[in-house]
């Protein structure tokens, strides 16, 4: 059967295997065993062809076939990434023959594509007014696309790249980086020079701006801030106003934290109409519905986390918000939940003492207090309750409630545990009010009130791009931190939101959060175990350098541009740096904070300098980096390796990722070929594979195999340098409640400010029951002479070419190619 390919213009042409082979060959250039890879992809591609396949389907089929083979060798991911980038080049720039021609095309089309974006109302018109396009175009370096893994190219293209009104893609990856860099230089005196500096860093993946910035940077709708943190006041006007604000912030993209502690409890009196309140739960459900209503055509729900203090009368119902069963009108299926816990509560848990719940209407100052002041006032309210002078209260055991929180956490992964007193007592911006909550991802620590919706602006240094000759490049880390802080500071003057209180707070505090990602990627390359002193010391040293450089740069910016408006009266203005607040917190808590206090840099010099002025109220926060970690091609935040192989979902379907560091380490020892099938069979767990040496097993433990205390120790050592917080995902094998209580008590004792999702190891894991899909054998059985690599590799054997009529009918790639038993 002859196969014809339908071109974009509708014309048909005969399928040209040579042309496809050449494209695959180019994509495999420079890789070890490239000829074998080309043959393997080409012969498997034949299985997926059918008459009338479009050129776009053909491109996708080649990529999917390459991806299917990632389990044999991560090099296939490189091939898939290159093939995908090439399809983007073709659509945006047209055909090209050589790398030189590609670079020339990049330069040639850059200005016209930006102009088109402006003409169509997609991009900020200042982009075509303020920049020297010749200089920018010449700096574009397409070879940097080679840094992207397949998932990175997909994420950039699908989530961040600008498309014309007619759906045409307008950006190749390097246009995208340059556009973001330009969009963050609009307030500079020499915008071209700064755009080039920012472009150099981001296009080399040395640091990345966070999601909202990458979505909206340089566009006509520059909502660039990442996190919005607000509290709902106890009046119906403000509840309505908050609902409106959530709608607008969701429309603009941005994670939201929302505290509901101030809302009076269910049954609490309402004087104006002589009735009683329904409490906060129904209003939370209303906002939960808003998150689904404003959802970009239903494709992307809004993202929000509700916070409440655990002395609120309705806290037991708050714990049920994420339960699957029960009244759906008293559930939040979309929004997340977090609990805002005091030192007083943790002490009462330790001492097995009672805990009292109150109606906020009767204890109105409690939500504004923290630390020892909270404890004192709380004790007074307890006395009033016992004396019968409060209308509503409930007495329970502190341990009983702690267990209830942890049982809910086990079952629903909510509420996340966050410690209000560690956060408030360590705050350097404590002159501008109480911090009532953290944000969607639990890394932000900023105050808010009725006039202030706090805002944070994030970026993350990619640690894996800061390793040179097997060691951290401290000078490069410092450089990245300094440039990132300037870029973040610029963002504040450029971004806008639809909530006046957010813009106001952003201007008054200029809060930024510089974090890191790729920690596990780095320690694996160093051969360290996540749960080792080497790793703990390394994260300590990394964050000390990031913290020092970020603070120093903010002080420099204050000299150049002036301090942030709320600087006077802040702890910065008293010469205090984040590390100093550990002792201050310990003194207030009256219980030791169990964290190493080693320092390496000249902090006395910096203490003097910060007194003179700071440009930003906060400087550091470690975000989850779930999406930008994909673009950077590294492990997210401080997270451990979840598995050596795992499934990733993209808009083009699921595909398999394999830990390249492990493959490399096994290859160095000549073990990869002999162990890879065992690794796949064991779902990415190498611990029971005999031939793998113990040292590698220690380095490549997965999340559920590590001690949960190692997550806490890494967080605590990083936290001591960070003025905001860390999105600390937790992974637990144990379901023992005493263990769980000890672990979360341990987090508080180490001064960890917040924890994020709790991932419980599933009780049962799926067995590898499916017979191995062995396309190699299928092809060989039909006579292929192609040399085989990887799983199913066979020696010898004969020929091929599968008839087109044998092509699967289920589309491309995964699930599309022949399946065992079908």
């Amino acid at each position: 059967m002859n196969i014809t390919v339908v071109k974009r213009n509708g014309e048909r042409e005969p399928y040209d295997a040579n042309k496809i082979n050449l494209a695959i060959e180019r994509a495999a250039e420079g890789l070890e065993d490239s000829i074998a890879w080309v043959t393997q992809i080409a012969s498997e591609l034949e299985l997926t062809l059918f008459d009338g396949i479009s050129t776009q389907q053909l491109d996708e089929a080649v990529i999917q076939v390459a991806l299917q083979n990632v389990k044999d060798d991560p090099a296939f991911d490189v091939v898939a990434a290159r093939l995908l980038v090439k399809t983007i080049y073709k659509r945006v720039l047209g055909d090209y023959e050589s790398p030189e021609e590609l670079k020339a095309l990049h330069a040639q089309h850059f200005a016209e594509n930006v102009h088109r974006g402006v003409d169509e109302g997609l991009l900020d018109e200042r982009l075509v007014q303020m920049f020297d396009f010749d200089r920018l175009a010449q700096a574009l370096e397409p070879t940097r696309d080679g840094l992207l893994k397949y998932i990175g190219v997909v994420t950039l293209n699908n989530r961040y790249g600008i498309k014309g009104r007619n759906g045409d893609p307008l950006e190749v990856p390097q246009y995208f980086w340059m556009r973001i860099a330009m969009g963050l230089s609009l307030n500079e005196q020499d915008p071209t020079a700064h755009a080039l500096t920012f472009y150099e860093k981001m296009s080399k993946l040395e640091y990345l701006a966070a999601g909202s910035t990458l979505v909206n940077g340089g566009t006509s709708y520059p909502q660039l801030a990442n996190c919005f943190v607000m509290e709902m006041q106890d009046d119906i006007e403000h509840i309505a106003k908050t609902t409106r604000d959530v709608m607008w912030l969701t429309k603009g993209t941005g994670g939201i934290g929302l505290a509901v502690t101030k809302l009076r409890a269910q049954g609490s009196p309402i004087r104006s109409n002589n009735t009683s309140s329904t409490g906060p739960i129904p209003f939370m459900h209303t906002i939960d519905s808003v998150l689904r209503a404003v959802s970009r055509g239903g494709k992307k729900f809004g993202a929000l986390c509700f916070y409440i203090e655990n002395w609120h009368m309705d806290f037991p119902e708050f714990l049920d918000l994420r339960q699957n069963s029960g009244d759906p009108y008293r559930r939040t299926r979309t929004a997340n939940t977090a609990v805002w816990i005091s030192d007083e509560f943790m002490k009462r848990v330790e001492n097995d003492e009672p805990w009292y719940l109150f109606d906020p209407l009767e204890v109105q100052d409690l939500n504004e207090l923290y630390g020892s002041a909270f404890s004192k006032r709380y004790a007074e309210y307890v006395e009033m309750a016992e004396a019968g002078t409060l209308n509503m209260f409930k007495k329970i055991g502190a341990r009983e409630q702690f267990k209830a929180i942890l049982i809910s956490l086990q079952g629903t992964s909510h509420p996340w545990l966050t410690w209000k007193d560690t956060i408030n007592n360590r705050a350097l911006n404590n002159n501008s009010g109480t911090i009532h909550l953290s944000n969607l991802c639990t890394e932000i620590c900023l105050p808010q009130d009725v006039d202030n919706v706090s805002v944070c602006n994030l970026a993350s240094i990619n640690l894996s791009q800061h390793v040179v000759d097997g060691a951290m490049d401290w000078a490069k880390i410092e450089e990245s931190a300094r440039i990132a802080v300037r870029q973040l500071d610029n963002l504040i003057d450029i971004t806008r939101s639809s909530v006046a209180e957010a813009d106001y707070s952003n201007e008054q505090n200029r809060a930024v959060g510089l974090g890191v990602m790729g920690f596990t990627d780095v320690i694996e390359r160093f051969g360290y175990s996540y749960e080792s002193e080497e790793s703990y010391d390394l994260i300590d040293e990394i964050m000390e350098h990031v913290s020092y450089a970020a603070i120093d740069e903010s002080a420099n910016l204050a000299q150049e541009r002036g301090s942030y408006p709320n600087f006077e009266g802040s702890r910065w203005s008293q010469g205090i740096v984040p590390l100093d607040t550990v002792d201050l917190t310990e003194a207030d808590r009256g219980v030791p904070i169990e964290v190493n206090r080693t320092t390496r840099l000249d902090w006395d010099r910096l203490r003097v300098k910060v007194k003179g002025g700071m440009r930003n109220a906060t400087l550091m926060a470690i975000a989850p980096t779930a999406s930008i970690g994909l673009v950077a091609g590294t492990t997210p935040g401080l997270d451990p390796q979840f598995s050596q192989i795992f499934s990733r979902s993209t808009s083009s379907g699921k595909f398999l990722e394999i830990n390249r560091n492990l493959v490399e380490a096994l290859r160095e020892r000549g073990l990869w070929e002999s162990t890879r099938e065992d690794i796949l069979r064991s779902q990415g767990d190498i611990q029971n594979i005999e031939s793998i040496p113990q040292a590698l097993k220690d380095t490549f433990k997965t999340s559920f195999q590590l001690s949960p205390y190692s997550f806490l120790e890494v967080a605590a050592r990083a936290q001591k340098w960070i003025d905001q917080a860390i999105s600390r995902n937790m992974y637990l094998d144990t379901r023992d409640m005493d263990d769980l209580m000890s672990i979360y008590m341990g987090a508080w004792k180490r001064g960890v400010k917040t924890t994020y999702y709790l991932h419980m190891k599933p009780r049962h894991t799926a067995e590898q029951s499916t017979v191995k899909v062995n396309k190699a054998e299928q092809i060989n059985a039909q006579g292929s002479s192609a040399p085989r690599k990887g799983f199913g590799a066979t020696t010898g054997s004969s020929t091929p070419v599968v008839a087109a009529s044998a092509a699967p009918k289920k589309g491309f790639g995964f699930g599309g190619a022949a399946k065992a038993g079908e």
């Binding site: 999601g211 909202s212 994670g255 779930a626 398999l656 999702y757 899909v773």
Partner: peptide
Amino acid sequence: MNPSAEGTATIDGYAVPVDPMDLLRCDSCQ
């Protein structure tokens, strides 16, 4: 329910763990 319980996917005939980051809803700010 706890999203981490949805932890296994089948790809190409193999059961493999799902990247936990796929389960997070934090990409609005990230």
